[in-house]
Amino acid sequence: MKNSLLLSRVAESVYWMSRYVERVENTVRLMNVNWHLMLDLPQVRSNEWESLLLVSGDYDLFKESYDEASAKNVMQFMTFDAMNPNSMLACLTAARENARSVRDVVTPEMWEQLNSLYLMVKAYDSDANGFYSNPHEFYQEIQAGILQFYGFVQVNMYREDSRSFFFLGNFLERADKTTRILDVRYFLLLPSVKEVGTALDDLQWAALLRSVSSIEPFIKKYGAIKARSIITYLLLDTQNPRSLHFCIQSADQALREVSETPFGMYHNDAERRSGQLLSELNYLTVEEITRRGLHETLDELQLKMNQLHNAIHDRYFNPDASQEIWK
């Protein structure tokens, strides 16, 4: 038994604080890339803004309060709309509320950074600042603020279980977003599986890569943009810090830091599921993915991630009250 003590509620709040911050990081990246893409595209072929709503799964909610998926409407909805639970403002509010409830494990630096990021987005006057004609700077500022927050986590969060739950939440959220973006974009860009393997000289594919991570390391390693390289890079590459494989590996490691269970073994359902998922990714190939169908594969992976989340919840956040008492 470890000496450090972490309340289940505190673990859960740290986990969700981290997920919400990472969600904002993904959304801001997606929005910014999309805005740049729209500038590059000769004419609008498909409605790129509408497809963003599909990624976050908020299309129906959007349609309840907006008519048209125009750039301005979608930016407003995804950035400032407090009624949209996935908007940057809503996620920052939720992250901050979670941080506030666990101020005894969040360092003052982390708290102040998150607090000022929230205040910045909340107080921003999008009309006065010409935001809708050039959102780049503001989006960059949010991104920089989040990275600074992560910096504080790295350099001054005490290395104990609360930190492991932070990274557990962070990597599971990132894994979820990477698979979602790939799923939606891929479907829109390449409806026919036959085209897998042909060179794609397309701005939109580059935008897809940029919206998940940097494109330069991809080019260095894989050269031309091909569908199979993209799938490899985003799902299976162990060196890309945003690939599904990397995220699951990191989440698995965080879980094992908490229980001190060695790799390849398990003591609870969360560890069993995370080990299983990691093992599947260790041995998965692009060929198998295309044989099973990308969408079907991603669907299955997402289901497993949800089950992993539920297992973490049951084991750590909502423990059984009939356990032995630790005195």
Binding site: A321, I325, W326
Partner: peptide
């Protein structure tokens, strides 16, 4: 009276 912690119940 116990606290619910990630390591189980603590008095």
């Amino acid at each position: 009276v116990c606290m619910k912690t990630t390591q189980g119940l603590k008095k």
